[in-house]
Design a protein around this nucleic acid. Structure first.
Length: 260
RNA sequence: AGACGCCGUA
């Protein structure tokens, strides 16, 4: 039993999900008791393999044994539903998580603390709505995240920001960027790249320069980042400011070009 | 500790 679990973990880690899951099925078929960590592992593996239904049925089995799923296990299930396009199921699990948190974890007689949605959970939900073009839902989830007491991080804001950019709400993206500051969440390199792209598509070169300076203050050499340069050059092109493109390329190539 | 979300297009 212990060696089964250990082997499943090892195979999962070694990037052999199929073997891990095959072993898991043997373990179940043999009638062995499955420990919480193994449940979590195989739920993750199924999620990664795009097998949302299997992940869900294991999730139910896990809860049936009185084990309270960890936040990471909730997230794995939510993102596997999201990847499979099963939005309703994803939201249902998310709301269940929110409810768990409100009940303070008394519900299933569990011993562990209740799982609460983290920045990553909110981000996963926002990303799901973003890919299906539902910006209002993205923004609603974003507001819930801001109201919730969970620790926020840059990627969570980036998800909302990126959704606004992709769905054409550039003004809203700028608002989120400034809300990051009021919420005291430091922008990441990803945030700055997104915003540089936003400013470039509007031909706002001063703001693009300001982004570069802010990155420099954080020790980031964005000017020599290929994805930064492509985003900004493309943006300037969209803005019809082809005159600004050469300097972007020059700066990229200046001292240490990163790709060919 | 690890796993799941953003980080130009695709």
């Amino acid at each position: 039993q212990v060696s089964y679990s250990a082997a499943i973990h090892a195979l999962g880690k070694a990037g052999r999900p199929k073997d891990a899951l095959a072993l898991f099925r043997q373990m179940r078929a043999a009638g062995w008791k499955i420990d919480p960590v193994t449940y979590a592992t195989v739920i993750h593996l199924h999620g990664q393999a795009g097998q949302a239904k299997e992940a869900a049925s294991l999730f139910r089995a896990m809860k049936g044994t009185g084990v309270r799923p960890s936040e990471g296990t909730y997230n794995a299930l939510i993102s596997s539903f999201a990847r499979a396009g099963m939005q309703d199921q994803a939201t249902r699990v998310f709301e269940e998580m929110v409810k768990e948190q409100e009940q303070g974890g008394e519900a299933a007689g569990g011993t562990a603390a209740a799982a609460r949605p983290s920045a990553m959970t909110y981000s996963t939900i926002m990303h799901m709505y973003a890919t299906s073009g539902q910006l209002p839902k993205v923004l609603e989830t974003y507001k819930r995240m801001r109201r919730s007491g969970c620790p926020k991080d840059a990627p969570a804001y980036n998800t909302a920001l990126s959704a606004c950019v992709k769905l054409g709400q550039v003004g809203r993206a700028e608002e989120i960027f400034s809300e990051m500051r009021t919420d005291k969440v430091p922008p990441s390199g990803g945030t700055l790249k997104l915003m540089a792209g936003v400013f470039a598509t509007q031909g706002r070169e001063e703001e693009v320069e300001e982004i570069l300076r802010e990155a420099a203050r954080k020790g980031l050499n964005l000017a020599q980042d290929v994805t930064y340069a492509s985003a900004v050059a493309r943006g300037y092109g969209i803005a019809g400011r082809f005159d600004l493109v050469p300097s972007v390329v020059d700066q990229l190539m200046a001292t240490s070009p990163k790709s060919a």
